[in-house]
Design a protein around this nucleic acid. Sequence first.
RNA 1: GGCGUCGUACCCAAGUGGUCUAAGGGAUCGGUUUGCAAAACCGCUAUUCGUCGGUUCGAAUCCGACCGACGCCUCCA
Length: 461
Amino acid sequence: MKNNIEFYNSISGRKETFKPINSSQVLLYGCGPTVYDAPHLGNFRTFVFYDLTIRVLELNDFSVKSVINITDIDDKIISRANSEKVAYDKITSKYESIFIDQWKRLNNQLPTHFIRATENISEMISFIEDLLSNNFAYVVNGSVYFDSKNSKIDYDKFVSNEEIHKDQNSEKKFQSDFALWKAWKKEDEEIFWDSPWGKGRPAWHTECSVIASNFLGNSIDIHCGGIDLKFPHHQNESVQVEALSKKIFTRYWLHSEHLLLEEDKMSKSLGNILSVQSLEEEFSLESIRLFLMTAHYRSKITFNKNLLIESQKMISKIERFIDNFNLRLDSKKFKNYDFVNEEIDFINALNDDLNTPKALGVFFNFINDFNKKNNSSAGNLKNAEREKAESFINLFNSVFQCLSVGKSNPLSDNIKDLLQTREQARAEKNWELADQVRDSLSNLGWIVEDTPKGPKVIRKK
RNA sequence: GGCGUCGUACCCAAGUGGUCUAAGGGAUCGGUUUGCAAAACCGCUAUUCGUCGGUUCGAAUCCGACCGACGCCUCCA
């Protein structure tokens, strides 16, 4: 079942129907993190957007080969390693593992490949040699620059040549030229790689060009990134691949908008507030993930803790729905099922340039309608109705991934005893004791709800 | 200076020419239910979409001006 998917292509500035180069497999590249520090919530807005894109493609029966790079060569890493007198790879491996850990725990699927820049240095060197031998690049003092005038390709992908500010004291011939290889400097100390042009390191744009074209080829379907990478990174990344291949490098450029701070002070203390790690102390990862999908990926989100609370409440509402009707979460469940109207609306919303807010609206409409229709018969739901609800819940979760599958917290004996005491008291109409016990349970983090089928305890969030 | 985006209820957020007297979530207040709660359900909360004009049979949606917020123009998810 391959439906029409529309993506907003940054190149054309409008929505376009998605048609992959090869219908059997979609090639997708996403720019990953520079591992010099712990990733923050804004980084993960973009990474959850990558995951969303892949999941929506897969929902439409596309198989996706995805590559996400890890930039472990960078000025910031070098200066941090040298100023802290720590081994270079200690820094990168530390923050890489934090990144991968959070990636997984936010329920992002692993891409086909995570690729480190440092593992492709020789490929980058030979790529630069190719550019040099075609006169698309030139060497100055051990650095190599892309020759944007000589490469004979359209440079103005996202920002035109004229718009680029003049750079004084530059080794470059033209203002739109950019570094492919950066020569070693004193401050770099012991951190360098050998090359035909001397000690140095590959430049950022080249890292992505080489990783993308090596693992996916010279023509890829989708290239994702944060909007801030549009220029210069994506323009330069694209232009050097195209100079050699003479083919269009990326057909669909997808850029996600920024997550803004409430007060746009870029102070370190505020920056800390936005780390996923610190948010985890107060909020579940599921609510963080859902929060990142409550607004469309191309609109700005101004961060506010209240929004996370609202996401948490949305999840509670869905989980209560699941619980009330005794539905089962099973990620495979919705497959091979004939989708009904609401589900088709849901999929269509996602296929319309990943419109997650609209899809959420469709889903909650379904929950409300279902509640209205079946509330009185919650205990003995008809099989067809149960199947319908389970199908949609699982379809929803296959993309949003914010519901816990099979994560039931076994009740401790203490809780069980308290519940029994309360039931006893209620049977004896000893309301005072019953309420006291309910307060104790609440203090222990459990909310009691009395249902026709007996008391239900829910872990406080 | 150049290029571009956005402004929808108390808050968040879809909708971009007629099905819009504007989806959905949160919040508030009434009601049903309950021993009391909770959950769920019912109802209320934008005749209006930054402002002012224009185009049109018809505009939140198109055009213009203005006001306001913001992004990019070689650090950046």
